[in-house]
């Protein structure tokens, strides 16, 4: 199928993009286009205007300073995956991004696009949530920063207004040597997850977990933090017993099913992925720190 008619506009600066969004009726932002273009081709969407933000250089780039990883919204997924700095400071990114689509889609697909599309099974919103990322949004009323937990409103719905665009995502980095794990089950390589779990872990010298973050994609209507499991782990010695208890929390997720897996199944898979991700995190933490 071919896309329905729309008028194409290319913005070369953030203000111009905002101006176009404010002025134009029924406009959609075109970031990497790896979801939007497919939806247009299937005629699921009929925007009157498309505002292309691929020619705004200041929207791309990766910097790390003062314990924060700052990624421009239009930074390509492949650039994040390939970044040596990101790999050193937050190794979970490269590991997770290997599961995000395929090389061709990562070359075009952007982090901001993935966050704004907010597919419930997408990996990047789960990573942002895992890190308590801060999303910067620019609009006609100026700039605002939204915590990732608040950025996610509902199923495929974000806190971004129609005349705003995401410009930057900031990830507070964890202490060097933190443990990390990412486990996903999808029917095929590169597919959206049946269930994916990302976790970060720090512990004290006795192996007791002092800080844990867990996020889950593919199970609920949006990516979620598994705060109950996090709480259950704090203060416990990392190991199979503690992880099994944490995994049991997956049973309480408000899961949603589809043709690839029922709600119940997704919760079961999430529990298994959680155990595996935590186990990886523990082993890496031991090795690293």
């Amino acid at each position: 199928m071919k896309p329905p008619p729309f008028a194409y506009h290319s913005a070369t600066s953030i203000p111009e993009a905002i101006q176009l969004l404010s002025k134009l009726e029924n406009a959609k932002l075109l970031a990497g286009g790896q979801s939007l273009m497919a939806m247009l081709n299937l005629r699921y969407l009929h925007p009157e205007n498309l505002v292309d933000i691929n020619r705004i250089p200041e929207l791309s780039g990766i910097t790390i300073d003062q314990g924060r990883l700052r990624i421009g919204a239009m930074t390509r997924q492949q650039a994040i995956k390939a970044s040596a700095e990101v790999k050193a400071a937050a190794p979970i990114f490269a590991e997770t991004l290997a599961y995000v689509g395929h090389r061709q889609t990562r070359n075009r697909g952007t982090i901001g696009g993935s966050l704004c599309h907010l597919d419930p099974a997408a990996e990047l919103p789960a990573l942002a949530l895992l890190h308590d990322a801060m999303v910067t949004v620019a609009g006609p009323r100026g700039e605002r920063k939204i915590e990732m937990a608040a950025f996610i409103v509902d199923y495929m719905t974000t806190a971004v207004q129609a005349d705003e665009l995401v410009t930057l995502i900031e990830f507070p980095l964890w202490r060097a040597g933190h443990g990390y794990g990412f486990a996903e089950f999808a029917r095929r390589h590169g597919d959206f997850a049946i269930a994916a779990v990302a976790c970060l872990m720090e512990s004290d010298s006795e192996g007791r977990m002092t800080r844990v973050a867990i996020s889950v994609a593919g199970v609920a209507a949006t990516a979620i933090r598994l705060t109950a499991a996090e709480a259950a782990l704090i203060g416990k010695v990392a190991g199979p017993e503690a992880f099994a208890a944490a995994a049991a929390c997956c049973a309480d997720i408000a899961a949603v099913g589809d043709v690839h897996g029922s709600a119940e199944y997704r919760k079961k898979v999430a529990a298994v992925m959680l155990r595996r991700a935590l186990t990886d995190a523990q082993s890496r933490m031991a090795k690293n720190g």
Binding site: Y8, S10, L30, G33, Q34, M37, A38, N41, L50, D52, N54, Q78, R103, Q104, T105, N107, R108
Partner: peptide, 13 residues
């Protein structure tokens, strides 16, 4: 020089 799906890009881009 990087691979892309040409069905997911517009010619104008």
């Amino acid at each position: 020089n990087v691979s892309a799906r040409s069905c997911l890009m517009l010619a104008v881009q």
